[in-house]
Design a protein around this nucleic acid. Sequence first.
DNA 1: AAAAAAAGTGAACATAAATTCACAAAATGA
DNA 2: TCATTTTGTGAATTTATGTTCACTTTTTTT
Lengths: 201, 201
Amino acid sequence: MAYRRSALMEERLADNRDRILLAARKLVADGGFREAQVAAVAAAAGLSTGTIYRYFPSKAELFVEVLTRAVEQEIQILDEIAQRDAPASERLGAAVASFVRRALAGPNLAYAFIAEPVDPEVEAARILCRKQFGDVFKTILIAGIDSGEFPTQDCDAAAACIVGAYTEALVGPIGPATRNTRDKARLIESIRTFCIRAVGG
Amino acid sequence: MAYRRSALMEERLADNRDRILLAARKLVADGGFREAQVAAVAAAAGLSTGTIYRYFPSKAELFVEVLTRAVEQEIQILDEIAQRDAPASERLGAAVASFVRRALAGPNLAYAFIAEPVDPEVEAARILCRKQFGDVFKTILIAGIDSGEFPTQDCDAAAACIVGAYTEALVGPIGPATRNTRDKARLIESIRTFCIRAVGG
DNA sequence: AAAAAAAGTGAACATAAATTCACAAAATGA
DNA sequence: TCATTTTGTGAATTTATGTTCACTTTTTTT
């Protein structure tokens, strides 16, 4: 008779898969991609290295999924902000501030995912992700130009600039030196102002 | 009697060192750090791999020098622009445009230097370089605020944002798809406008 | 020209990390 | 419980490169 997975088994497998993704994510958040070797992920997930390959065909595919999962979440939040019923400049500022706030909140992987380098497969995925972020801002920009709130401009370039601006401004602060709450708030405000002004809002 | 290098020999050694640096730079420009292995550098320089280690203690140190050399050149150009006798917003725009123009002319090198991943030693050097770029813009910003041309703002954050903005806006265009001259000119203009507006100029 | 020192060589070595695989353990169905 | 299938294991394998070193060639000095 054929082997049939029980519901319980099915669940445990899904659980393992999830644990692997979560462990990988945590490793990246803590030490960047550099320290997230397959063996380390396995150990963190409480599994053996071989087992990882029962769930993912390669390290690259595992990390592509780690990346896209995290970014999906982030994009969802930003999309919600972008669709609010408010002036474009307000939505733009809120979206930027929202991202930056989370990035500054502890050892978030936002930066590692957006800026840290990896092997070509993951790199390709990352470029797509950055584009996704850009698209959120592009949407807001187009709306703002339509409503006359912003001057006409190259929305693709401006969107990329916005993503780059807040990303780079986070590089320093995200590093070793942890800032206090007031400093963080000030930084968020500075970046927000920069981005809104930049598009003529 | 002790061995003394002749002037000719001295020159040849210096020449070799230079050839190694140039070969390494070219390899990075063509295929990124990924394809710039020590053996490849040696071959491109017309030397053996072992010889590389007579001139540089490690691959990392070689590439740190490749990086800093290229950046020094770039910084010099930007510094000259920053010190011109002109309105701050004009200097800011000129500096940004100057960088972007060159990056678009030699795409891969720019990408490799700006965005491509490397080992920690080189990464550390790159972060310092980005800071150097930021400092150029910070200088301009401070001058602009002093003269009342720009509103008061967080110059560190704004400088980082500027560097990030034009960098990110270059990542896409720098990729496989090469743009025509008109597109490039338009992109440069878009980025320039973005950055000037961003600081309230 | 011979001896001594330095520079050049590239195959061999070291290392690190991804991937595989023969086997063990666990789950399923009869 | 036994046979079958799936899942888990981790040591061994593979691969890719940085680095070394015993040896050769070149340069310098006497």
